[in-house]
């Protein structure tokens, strides 16, 4: 087995990695919470959530709180499996280095 088998290219980016890490341990997270935790701009965050959404790793739910639009994200089953594999691969690589 090659060393980087299991490394998911999609997660090979700071912001996407961050989004997935947060969604692994939170049932749902809204847009502003992501901004607060990841310290990114609106446009930057939106493009990365879009990428993950297109890969079917996260689900987007749009709704309104009063008159304000509210966008919530949650992780899909496929996303959870893929990210777990990615973490395993990372850990595997690090163990090999030691």
């Amino acid at each position: 087995m090659g060393l980087i088998d299991g490394i998911n290219k999609l997660f090979d980016h700071r912001i996407r990695l961050g989004i997935m890490s947060i969604l692994m341990v939170n049932e749902h997270v809204d847009f502003n919470r992501f901004k607060e935790l990841l310290e990114v701009t609106d446009g930057n965050l939106a493009s990365h959530t879009k990428t993950l959404e297109n890969a079917n790793y996260i689900l987007v739910e749009k709704s309104f709180i009063g008159r304000k639009p509210n966008t919530k994200y949650r992780i899909t089953k496929a996303g959870r499996t893929a990210f777990s594999k990615h973490i395993e691969a990372l850990e595997h690589i690090i163990k090999q280095q030691k």
């Binding site: 060393l3 980087i4 700071r14 990695l17 961050g18 890490s21 947060i22 692994m24 341990v25 939170n26 997270v29 919470r33 935790l37 990841l38 973490i87 990372l90 850990e91 690589i93 690090i94 280095q97």
Partner: peptide, 22 residues
Amino acid sequence: MDENKYLEDIGQIKDLMNRSSR
């Protein structure tokens, strides 16, 4: 191989999981 980047990734995952949930 870029092992430091992977270490950093793991660190970031742990950090965000902690900060975002508890």
